[in-house]
């Protein structure tokens, strides 16, 4: 029983990181129709920036803030230089994002080598005990940040004009254009947002799993799977999908080796694609249309 609680909590922590990555995918997919295969690598390189800045002696909050800014700029640059020229060629745009991911990984190796690096947690190391389970304080911080992010995003999308325009553009770009919304602005916004979310996810995960050049790919791919579980293009589903995937993986790690644990996500992905392409709890969005 206590093991179960322990696994559940651990799953929620890692799941909330997947969830954030998944939301970033969803935003880009909804506006541009592109799945950004470079997403995870954007997160990795932003985290690496944070680590390097921190190691040079900058205070933690400043290092993280600069890394987030870096993520935003990176997202904007990718959108402007690589995605916008291919607006009408979704497949080519996808291939370009694969190339960007690869290039970012390479850059990371060139700059930082292949060793794993770590970023300390902003919160003092404590271990909390609840329901017989133990939870490191950093995990709590992750949960808190993820919760705050979700609230912030909800406020952005539900409460502001730009957020409504963003959603409108995702549902029907043609009508959005007729309402005076510049679709290209929204596409840039999607990439900036995904850069920011990626940076936050990277910084949050770094104290848990260490960070190296290929960590991003793993986070990114899991983020995808979370997306598909929730139904591609559905941000609420993406978030739920992230938590679900985290929990399933965590529970499975009790019985499986870590390698097979990683395979679960992808087996789940294939099964969902084949049998429930609208996502496990999808369909909502489609019905609403």
């Amino acid at each position: 029983m206590t093991d179960l609680v322990q696994f559940l909590l651990g799953g929620l922590v890692i799941g909330s990181i997947y969830a954030i990555a998944a939301i970033a995918y969803t935003g880009i997919y909804n506006i541009t129709g592109v799945i950004n295969f470079g997403q995870g690598d954007m997160a990795m390189i932003s985290a690496m920036v944070a680590i390097s800045l921190y190691e040079t002696g900058l205070p933690y909050p400043l290092a993280v803030a600069l890394a987030i800014l870096f993520g935003a700029l990176l997202g904007a640059a990718i959108e402007r230089l690589a995605i916008r020229p291919l607006r009408n060629h979704v497949l080519r745009a996808i291939i370009v994002t694969i190339g960007i991911g690869g290039a970012l990984e390479g850059v990371a190796v060139v700059l930082w080598g292949t060793e794993a690096r770590t970023l300390p947690s902003p919160v003092a190391a404590h271990t909390l005990h609840a329901f017989g389970a133990t939870l490191p304080s950093h995990s709590l911080a992750v949960l808190a940040v993820a919760g705050a992010l979700v609230c912030g995003l909800a406020l952005l999308f539900q409460g502001t004009y730009i957020g409504r325009a963003f959603r409108a553009c995702a549902v029907n770009p043609f009508a959005a254009r007729l309402s005076g919304i510049e679709v290209s602005t929204m596409s840039a916004l999607a990439f900036v947002l995904s850069g920011v979310l990626g940076a936050i996810a990277g910084v949050m995960v770094a104290p848990i799993t260490l960070m190296q050049y290929d960590t991003g790919l793993a986070i990114g791919l899991k983020g995808f799977v979370a997306c598909m579980i929730g139904g591609l293009g559905n941000p609420v589903g993406a978030f739920a999908g992230g938590l679900f995937l985290g929990v399933v993986e965590s529970l499975a790690s009790g019985v499986l080796s870590s390698g097979w644990k990683n395979a679960i996500a992808f087996l789940l992905l294939i099964a969902i694609l084949l049998f429930r392409p609208g996502g496990l709890f999808g369909e909502l969005e489609r019905r609403a249309r």
Binding site: R167, A168, V171, N172, F174, A175, A288
Partner: peptide
């Protein structure tokens, strides 16, 4: 060409 998943008022 409505925004189907937005409410009437949001549209």
């Amino acid at each position: 060409e409505l925004f189907g998943s937005l409410t009437v008022q949001e549209n």
